[in-house]
Design a protein around this nucleic acid. Structure first.
Lengths: 113, 113
DNA sequence: CCTTTATAGTCCTTGATTGGAATATAACTG
DNA sequence: CAGTTATATTCCAATCAAGGACTATAAAGG
């Protein structure tokens, strides 16, 4: 049951790049902009979205704003994934059976011969 | 490294509802529309997005199109999550230390007295 | 064939998102 | 206080996603 804002935040590839970068440790806005090849305003805006999704925390150090990743929302995503996980895990055979029942994606029901 | 289309597909709450429904088994477009409170055209369109993201397979039965969930892309999402998982898992203490170093989110560096 | 049922596609409008450019703010420095 | 550095915000144009209404297609049935 992740916050809808989390999904929206992760929908953008730039933002995913940002949190991937933050996985390596805290970074300032400037560093993030440079590493992710974003303009400074763009970086600021994306970070705002990430902050509002709870993915990122900010701490002020002099004029800089150091951003750190907060993985809690990702844990929520992990929970969301849980019920699906069993579909490709243990009972992969059951799924296989379901999918194998499909004659073809685009053909009519009748066999092709 | 999930397909960008996967993130986009999951970003919509209606589509998440659809795949949650499909977790319970195959469904026709009409059923999906009704259960998820979508108009028929809307359901068709959302299903198209899910299909293009590889999350859903379709099989034709007479005039109906029976949709089944394909969890493979979700497994990719699971993989994507892997490097983050350690952040709230084992070394949760290390993260705690990082976050505790933060004086406050909005205050200046100098103590308030 | 004509009709019914089930679904897909098109057109249009609307609201949200994104990026760029320029500006504003805020904190340190001399 | 003036200047500099770091970041945020605002404004704007362009693109995009989503819903509604309508139409089109496709299969089945009489």
């Amino acid at each position: 049951m992740p916050d809808p804002a989390l999904w929206a935040a992760l929908a953008d590839p730039h933002r995913r790049a940002v949190i991937a970068l933050l996985r390596t440790g805290p970074h300032t806005v400037g560093e993030i902009a440079q590493e992710c090849e974003l303009s400074q305003p763009s970086a600021s805006k994306h970070l705002k979205v990430l902050r509002e999704a709870g993915l990122v925390r900010v701490r002020q150090e002099a004029q800089r704003r150091v951003h750190t990743l907060d993985p809690a929302p990702l844990a929520a995503l992990d929970d969301w994934l849980a019920p699906y996980r069993k579909l490709w895990g243990e009972s992969l055979d059951a799924l296989g059976r379901r999918l194998d029942a499909r004659p073809d994606t685009t053909e009519p029901t009748t066999p092709k011969d």
